[in-house]
């Protein structure tokens, strides 16, 4: 049995090696094909606006995608490429500085900010000029122009981004584009039923229910209820399955009474 014992020893030592070889997962690196810029079907159905304007010749239309109702690739004289994006946001509660922080973060450190008034279609908005001082070369440093407009409770953002050189060349075209813009609503806006003022304010006179997918797992169901001269917002947020189990409970609001306890 001598050979057997030798084998046993090998197995034993191999098992020890196996026990000590259990490590944690590694960081992985891989290449992926660029994701197509076509809009996702569930986003197309939510599109409500079309933006028309004088588009310069060197802007190539890419079509709507995600939150963007219009986007273009801007081609510079030095073969550099930039991007124009038009994004409407409904019910945004962040203030101007918080929104600008998003784009400042993209530019890196030492960002210089300037602002001026600008005509956007028939309205007046504000144009912010954000430029990065790092790196110092204008061929490499990045710059963003963002025009902001609040119209009909919708925050509109018109953004052009690219190298400092490209944005310097494209700024006149971008302002011309902003001046010529027309925003067309492609769907009928939903309007809340206007109710007569009710001093008792104890019966919900109308409500509308919205169902949003925050992402693939998370969902938000909201009810906007009008009671007399008051508008109330009820929100249910959580995992898809949990919200689905409980969303019908929001219908109980139809049978609830609201009392003005503030006197």
């Amino acid at each position: 049995m001598r050979i057997g014992f030798t084998l046993e020893k090998i197995i034993f030592l191999a098992a020890i090696a196996l026990l000590t070889g259990c490590g944690k997962e590694d960081i992985k690196v891989y290449q992926i094909p660029k994701e197509p810029t076509v809009a996702k079907p569930h986003q197309q159905s939510q599109e409500q606006w079309k933006v028309i304007g004088d588009v310069p010749e060197n802007w190539e239309e890419k079509g709507p995608s995600g939150m963007r109702v219009a986007q273009y690739v801007v081609k510079g004289k030095d073969n550099s490429q930039g991007e124009v994006a038009v994004m409407p946001m409904v019910g945004l509660r962040a203030n101007k500085n918080e929104i600008l922080a998003i784009w400042k973060g993209q530019l890196g450190q030492d960002v210089v900010e300037k602002s001026e008034r600008v005509k956007i279609g028939e309205d007046e908005g504000e144009l912010f000029d954000l430029s990065s001082q790092q790196p110092t070369s204008p061929e490499l440093s990045q710059r963003i122009l963002v025009a902001m407009l609040i119209k009909d409770n919708v925050n509109w953002f018109f953004r052009i981004s690219g190298t400092s050189n490209l944005i310097e060349q494209s700024k006149p075209d971008f302002i011309k584009y902003l001046n010529s813009i027309k925003i067309i609503s492609t769907s009928q806006p939903q309007r809340e039923a206007i109710t007569k003022p009710n001093t008792n304010a104890n019966i919900p006179s109308s409500n509308s229910k919205s169902d949003f997918k925050v992402n693939e797992q998370i969902r938000m169901v909201g009810v906007i209820a009008s009671a007399g001269s008051y508008t109330m917002f009820f929100k249910m947020t959580g995992q898809n399955s949990a919200v689905d189990r409980h969303k019908d409970e929001l219908n109980l609001l139809n049978h609830s009474g609201f009392k003005n306890v503030a006197g």
């Binding site: 944690k24 997962e25 960081i27 992985k28 290449q31 992926i32 094909p33």
Partner: peptide, 13 residues
Amino acid sequence: ADFDIVVSIPESY
């Protein structure tokens, strides 16, 4: 190019 490079860091880190 047509490809992007992804560095994926597991949750354990």
